[in-house]
């Protein structure tokens, strides 16, 4: 059975290790965001055969980030082997990350999205404390890296903090040239597949430019579905070996799962 057949048979991926490096828990004031708690996430994971997801609390990025991190930690606590928790960081505050990574072991990485926290750039002064901490401890950092300028800033950060590991969310579809340059310059960068709507052929395009080792499955679940992005990978023109790398093997190695 080829990987694509799972779509047509509506069968979960039992024999393939699947990691979603980019999901969210928590609701939203801006739009209806159903089934957003940890139990609902795991229900969807089981239906599709996703082994591990890496979550941040999306409303927490827009409001009280420490409250949001508790929401995310709760989802992780309910399913510690299935949901890994990114701590959202906020450049407007000074914060000792030992709180999350030494006195508390609920988090495994950071989520950085400073543009929603006062329209601040990724490489702003307030974020350096967090990048330095990630660098010191070899933590993964998930960037919202949509705009070309964000990807250029993220690349500068990745070069400055080589011991941290950075996932450039969205960028392989939205800022292709800059994402390719980031992969050329930085070994500590992985791209993801997260985007709600993109044409068939876009995944093949980015894989052809950076290699199948540099792209990981990500979806933005529960902000929206994940099955259609799974299908974009499964029904793409990538080989099954390449699909397996994108779906889970790259993330397993990069995130040390």
């Amino acid at each position: 059975m080829e990987l694509k057949d799972h779509v047509f048979l509506s069968k979960e991926l039992k024999d393939t290790f699947v990691v979603d490096v980019h999901i969210h828990v928590g609701g939203s004031t801006r739009y209806q965001k159903p089934r957003n708690d940890g139990d609902s996430v795991v229900y969807t994971m089981d239906r599709l055969g996703i082994d591990v997801t890496c979550a941040s609390c999306s409303p927490g990025a827009y409001c009280d980030w420490m409250w949001g991190n508790e929401v995310c930690a709760e989802a992780h606590a309910g399913h510690p082997d299935r949901i890994k928790a990114y701590a959202v960081v906020n450049p407007n505050y000074e914060f000792d990350l030992d709180e999350y990574f030494v006195r508390d072991d609920r988090f495994f990485g950071l989520k950085a999205i400073p543009f929603v926290q006062g329209n601040l750039p990724i490489d702003c002064a307030g974020m350096q404390q967090y990048y330095a901490y990630a660098d010191k401890h070899g933590l993964p950092v998930l960037f919202h890296a949509w705009q070309p300028s964000e990807v250029r800033d993220a690349t500068a950060v990745a070069r400055r903090y080589p011991n941290a590991r950075f996932i450039f969310g969205h960028s392989g579809f939205t800022a292709v040239e800059e994402a390719v340059e980031a992969c050329k310059l930085c070994d500590n960068v992985l791209l993801d597949t997260t985007i709600s709507d993109i044409y068939d052929g876009a995944l093949e395009r980015i894989v052809s430019k950076v290699g199948a080792d540099r792209v990981a499955y990500g979806t933005d679940l529960t902000a929206f579905e994940c099955s259609h992005i799974l299908g974009r990978v499964l029904l793409s023109r990538l080989t099954d070996t390449e699909k397996e790398k994108v779906l889970g093997l790259n993330a397993k190695e990069f995130l040390k799962l």
């Binding site: 779509v7 047509f8 509506s10 239906r47 599709l48 709507d197 993109i198 044409y199 068939d200 579905e225 099955s227 259609h228 992005i229 799974l230 299908g231 974009r232 499964l234 029904l235 793409s236």
Partner: peptide, 18 residues
């Protein structure tokens, strides 16, 4: 929405729906 939309995504959304 072909060819600017994704047929793969659209088909998967229905096939995997509960």
């Amino acid at each position: 929405g072909l060819p600017t939309g994704s047929a793969a995504a659209a088909v998967s959304l229905i096939c995997f729906a509960e």
